[in-house]
């Protein structure tokens, strides 16, 4: 691979943003600027290689604008963003940035282009100039990894939304990115589709050590993340581990987010003086704690 552009920094982080600002300008019919919207307003984020990071936020919080910066679809208006040490605002880095951070978008129908599943997965590496034998190997591996190998000769338009998203993820994997960004990739899926896509992503993170940035407004999806950033009105309003973030009931409400039912139950029971831990996120753990309390009276 060719050497990337000159500007390198970011202290060994996979992603590092410093005072990142993005402004959209609104124009009238003659192209005169009539207003400026600050979609991202001074965001500092650090992601280490291999991390599973979630960016939570309501509609209009700036999270999708942030996502588009991560693979160089948008450039900072102010501040800096380094992806694997490359400054995204340096245009000579664009190709390397996109190869480093692969994007999965919300609508599965907008990101599948070929008539056959395996051709779609091979499209990315083919464009990158990967040799044919290597493409075939990657397509097979990627499809097996997302559990879609048996559909390799199917037409994508016969697949369910969740299956299409997994094919899209396989297509990204075949390009061997160090980082995968999922921008509300589960928003259009039913519960089973969501579970399968999230399971796939989690496995890629644990097994292949791929850095994951999961962007969503479903708090249920982020309980397994290493670290969470909550965005509101273009700023990071709250950050921390799932335990640290989920306990901030008032702040989350301000950010237009709602905790999963298990968290809401835990809060209500604790308010009624039932001594269970506040960082319980799973059904199994809550049941265990409750049964133990019932048995021992504590």
């Amino acid at each position: 691979m060719k050497e990337a552009g000159r500007t390198k920094s970011g202290k060994g982080n996979m992603i590092e943003s410093k005072d990142l600002v993005h402004e959209y300008s609104r124009r009238d019919e003659d192209g005169n600027i009539t207003g400026i919207i600050r979609a991202i307003d001074g965001v500092d984020i650090q992601v280490k290689p291999g991390d599973f990071i979630a960016v939570l936020g309501a509609n209009g919080s700036g999270k999708s604008t942030f996502a588009k910066h991560l693979n160089g679809l948008l450039f900072p208006t102010e501040g800096t963003l380094y992806i694997d040490g490359m400054d995204t605002s340096d245009s000579t880095n664009a190709l390397f940035v996109r190869q480093t951070a692969g994007m999965v978008f919300q609508n599965p129908d907008n990101q599948i282009i070929a008539n056959i599943v395996e051709e779609d997965v091979g499209f990315g590496p083919e464009n990158m100039g990967v040799p044919t034998q290597e493409i075939l190997k990657r397509v097979e591996e990627s499809l097996k990894e997302v559990g879609m190998f048996e559909y390799r000769r199917h037409s994508p338009n016969r697949l369910s939304g969740g299956q299409k998203q997994r094919v899209a993820i396989a297509g990204i994997m075949a390009m061997r990115p160090k980082c995968i960004v999922l921008d509300e990739a589960t928003a259009m899926l039913d519960p089973v589709g969501r579970k399968n896509v999230l399971g796939t992503v989690l496995r890629l993170n644990k097994k292949e050590k791929i850095t994951i940035i999961l962007i969503t407004h479903y708090m249920e999806e982020v309980v397994q993340a290493d670290y969470i950033y909550v965005m509101n009105k273009g700023k990071v309003a709250l950050e921390g581990t799932p335990g640290e973030v989920f306990r901030e009931e008032g702040k989350l409400e301000e950010c237009r987010l709602t905790a999963p039912q298990i968290t809401q139950l835990v809060r209500k029971l604790r308010k009624a003086n039932i001594p269970i831990r506040e960082d319980i996120f799973s059904e199994e753990e809550l049941i265990r704690s409750l049964l133990l309390f019932k048995k021992n009276g504590r």
Binding site: Q261, L265, K294
Partner: peptide, 28 residues
């Protein structure tokens, strides 16, 4: 719903609990 399922699970584990819950409030 998650809150309903939790109550069902507790009942399966032998808890003498009202299973007919629709919302977080009812389950709590």
């Amino acid at each position: 719903p998650q809150a309903t399922r939790l109550v069902h699970r507790l009942a399966e584990q032998g808890a003498q609990i009202e299973k007919d819950c629709l919302t977080v409030e009812e389950s709590a």
